[in-house]
Structures are given as C-alpha cells and as structure tokens.
Amino acid sequence: MPDYFHGYTVVGLVAVAGVLFVAVSFGAGRLLRPTVPTPEKLLPYECGVDPVGEGWAHTQIRYYVYAFLYVIFAVDSVFLFPWATIFAADGYGGVTLVEMFVFLGFLSVGLLYAWKKGVLEWT
C-alpha cells in the first residue's frame, strides 16, 4: 500500500512547490517594484497606440471566424502528429486509419459548411 500512495505524494509535493513558487514570486514582485501611479500609467494601453475616444469599439466578426478556423486546424495538426507516430505500431494500423478518416471527415464537413455559408469570403 505505501508504494501506491508514493506516486500521489510526489505529485502533491510538486503541486505545493509550484504554488509556493508562484506565491513567492508574486509577493517578491509586489514588495520590490516601485509604485508611483501617474495619470499616464493609469490609462489603458493597447498595442502601443494611445487610446483615443471611448473604450468601446466594434470588431468585425470575420476575425473571430478566422481565429476559430485556425483553432480547428491547430487541433487537427495536434491530433495528426501522434496518429502518425502510432500508425506504424503493430495492431493500431487499421483502427487508427478509420478513426483519422472519421475525424478528417468531421473537419471537412465543417469546412464545407463554412465555405457554403460564405464565411471564407473576405469582403
């Protein structure tokens, strides 16, 4: 029984050490940094451009759609690399091939849907 809990003890100690490291780092940063608030420092900062006008601005939805499509294909690539490494292993070839085609089919249907809806048009 002691060997069983040894693994959990190590994970718990690493988690506690990580939390302590973050807490000590933030505490040291708070104690060591200078705090001289000025009106310029309290302004919102956005990509090096001084704020002009009100803080609310409309953003085109197509940028979010492209970001969403990027995430879909990033997930696809994250799934493809491990699949490519295990595909050659004994006993995994046929099953993983079918799973990959099902996964790529779902992605293809989503891409076709986006294309038919005109989401991929930049106008």
Results as ranks from 00 to 15, higher is better:
residue 99 E to M: 14
residue 120 L to H: 01
residue 45 Y to A: 15
residue 106 F to T: 08
residue 41 K to A: 11
residue 64 Y to G: 07
residue 77 S to T: 05
residue 85 T to N: 04
residue 96 T to N: 12
residue 95 V to M: 05
residue 77 S to L: 10
residue 42 L to R: 05
residue 11 V to H: 04
residue 96 T to P: 00
residue 6 H to D: 15
residue 2 P to Q: 09
residue 46 E to V: 03
residue 112 L to F: 11
residue 81 F to P: 00
residue 61 I to F: 14
residue 93 G to Y: 02
residue 106 F to Q: 03
residue 72 I to H: 02
residue 112 L to M: 11
residue 61 I to Y: 14
residue 14 V to T: 04
residue 14 V to F: 09
residue 13 L to S: 07
residue 89 A to S: 12
residue 21 F to T: 08
residue 89 A to M: 12
residue 63 Y to G: 09
residue 43 L to W: 05
residue 16 V to C: 09
residue 22 V to F: 15
residue 109 V to D: 00
residue 62 R to Y: 08
residue 62 R to A: 13
residue 43 L to G: 08
residue 91 G to F: 04
residue 79 F to K: 06
residue 100 M to C: 04
residue 59 T to S: 11
residue 113 Y to C: 06
residue 30 R to E: 15
residue 56 W to V: 15
residue 87 F to G: 05
residue 106 F to Y: 07
residue 113 Y to P: 00
residue 74 A to C: 02
residue 96 T to K: 06
residue 35 T to I: 13
residue 108 S to K: 11
residue 31 L to S: 14
residue 99 E to V: 14
residue 93 G to Q: 08
residue 118 G to I: 01
residue 8 Y to S: 08
residue 73 F to S: 06
residue 3 D to T: 03
residue 23 A to D: 03
residue 17 A to C: 02
residue 103 F to V: 01
residue 70 Y to L: 14
residue 118 G to N: 02
residue 70 Y to C: 12
residue 92 Y to E: 09
residue 7 G to P: 06
residue 3 D to H: 04
residue 46 E to S: 08
residue 108 S to C: 08
residue 51 P to M: 02
residue 13 L to A: 10
residue 115 W to G: 03
residue 8 Y to E: 08
residue 13 L to V: 13
residue 35 T to W: 12
residue 6 H to M: 09
residue 81 F to S: 10
residue 49 V to P: 07
residue 5 F to E: 13
residue 61 I to W: 15
residue 18 G to D: 02
residue 36 V to D: 15
residue 97 L to S: 14
residue 17 A to H: 07
residue 102 V to I: 13
residue 32 L to M: 12
residue 115 W to A: 03
residue 120 L to R: 00
residue 86 I to M: 06
residue 26 F to G: 05
residue 32 L to F: 02
residue 10 V to L: 08
residue 62 R to W: 07
residue 81 F to D: 05
residue 36 V to E: 15
residue 94 G to A: 06
residue 21 F to G: 10
residue 41 K to M: 11
residue 61 I to K: 09
residue 92 Y to P: 01
residue 56 W to N: 10
residue 79 F to I: 12
residue 18 G to K: 02
residue 78 V to A: 09
residue 12 G to R: 01
residue 109 V to L: 12
residue 98 V to F: 08
residue 18 G to I: 00
residue 78 V to P: 01
residue 88 A to P: 01
residue 98 V to D: 03
residue 24 V to P: 10
residue 98 V to P: 06
residue 82 P to Q: 00
residue 90 D to M: 05
residue 108 S to R: 09
